[in-house]
């Protein structure tokens, strides 16, 4: 953990250093934000968030062979959005099983409402309150 952080900060510091040596060109990005330059802290943030995305992907069962290519095809801001919001972001998938899931879900809701005595949908349930 500490070693990896050390490596990251080394990479950042060297990359910043090399940038200072030839910093005379204004990048397209800088022109967008009118000279609102990216601080070294933000840079560190972005590098770490790419690492975070890789870890998240591993945990979510993404094939490890393609993780590198997937993260490499994201821009910095895309990677940090995923790193910080992956749990709440929607994921589109056909998932035919989800319809079955919906039916099971409704079944369970009705079962519970039956049991607490709000509904009587099924003939095999007995409400816990005697009304």
């Amino acid at each position: 953990m500490n070693i990896s952080k050390l490596i990251v900060s080394f990479i950042v510091s060297t990359s910043l250093f090399t940038e200072v040596l030839s910093a005379q060109m204004v990048s397209t990005e800088a022109s967008f934000e009118h000279a609102k330059s990216v601080s070294s802290k933000e840079k560190l943030h972005q590098i770490i968030s790419r690492e975070d995305v890789k870890k998240e992907f591993e945990q979510m069962g993404v094939d490890s062979k393609v993780i590198q290519a997937r993260v490499a095809s994201m821009t910095d801001s895309e990677a940090s959005q995923i790193a910080y919001k992956i749990d709440t972001l929607p994921a589109g998938g056909d998932a035919g099983a989800s319809l079955v899931g919906a039916i099971v879900f409704i079944f369970i809701v009705l079962l519970i409402t039956d049991i607490i005595g709000v509904t009587k949908v099924f003939n095999f349930t007995k409400p816990i309150t005697n009304r």
Partner: peptide
Amino acid sequence: NERTWIPDKGGTLQIELVAAARA
């Protein structure tokens, strides 16, 4: 397929749809 599928999410994130299309 390999670049968009997240097994535990059961689908594809919008960001990755964009990134894969761009790639």
